[in-house]
């Protein structure tokens, strides 16, 4: 069994990890890099709790052997969290009662991050489609949809101010 070195750019920081064959990206993130914001959920792709952004696309980190994403750029919930505070999406989740137990949050946040990066003004239908693979057993989803919509509006506003 030959372990391998895998290089990743995680939240802007170059990381080098040694992985046993088939170690999944979620294990690398949580167990080796101690980025425990990414949750380990169902292990079969159906809950979305482990969602992260790899090379600009939201994906399931539990279904990715680390060897197959060597040299990729990975963003986790830690990467969208400013030091000592919350990002606009996180703030909107808190303010909109869109977080209760919290387990789904990081996955929801990462699919929302990928959505807004591609479409800064998503409709409710766009948001629903984006989070349709992420399970939340607390909120009933509507507060999450509203929060993502509110955060997107805030982020557009901030961008406009920055541009002016």
């Amino acid at each position: 069994m030959a372990s391998r070195i895998v290089t990743l750019l995680v939240n802007g920081t170059p990381q080098e990890v040694i992985v046993r064959p088939g170690t999944t990206l979620v294990s690398v993130l949580r167990d080796q890099l101690e980025l425990t914001g990414t949750k380990r959920g169902c292990a079969d792709g159906s809950c979305g709790a482990c969602s992260v952004v790899v090379d600009g696309k939201a994906v399931r980190s539990c279904l990715i052997p680390a060897e197959t994403v060597d040299e990729a750029e990975v963003t986790t919930v830690e990467g969208i969290t400013p030091v000592g505070g919350l990002g606009p999406l996180q703030e909107a989740l808190v303010e909109g009662f869109a977080t209760q137990c919290g387990f789904c949050n990081s996955g929801m946040l990462m699919v929302a991050t990928a959505l807004i990066a591609e479409n800064p003004d998503p409709s409710d239908a766009d948001i629903m489609r984006a989070i349709s693979g992420n399970v939340c057993r607390c909120t009933g989803y509507h507060p999450i949809i509203r929060a993502i919509r509110d955060a997107a509006a805030k982020m557009r506003g901030a961008q406009q101010i920055a541009a002016e």
Binding site: P21, T24, A43, D44, G45, C62, P65, T68
Partner: peptide, 22 residues
């Protein structure tokens, strides 16, 4: 990997080698 990895994550598949097409 969306079909194969759930198998590998949740049961003993007996597989020794994966060849990624990536």
């Amino acid at each position: 990997g969306t079909l194969l990895m759930p198998e590998i994550n949740t049961r003993a598949t007996g597989l020794t080698t994966l060849v990624s097409l990536k």
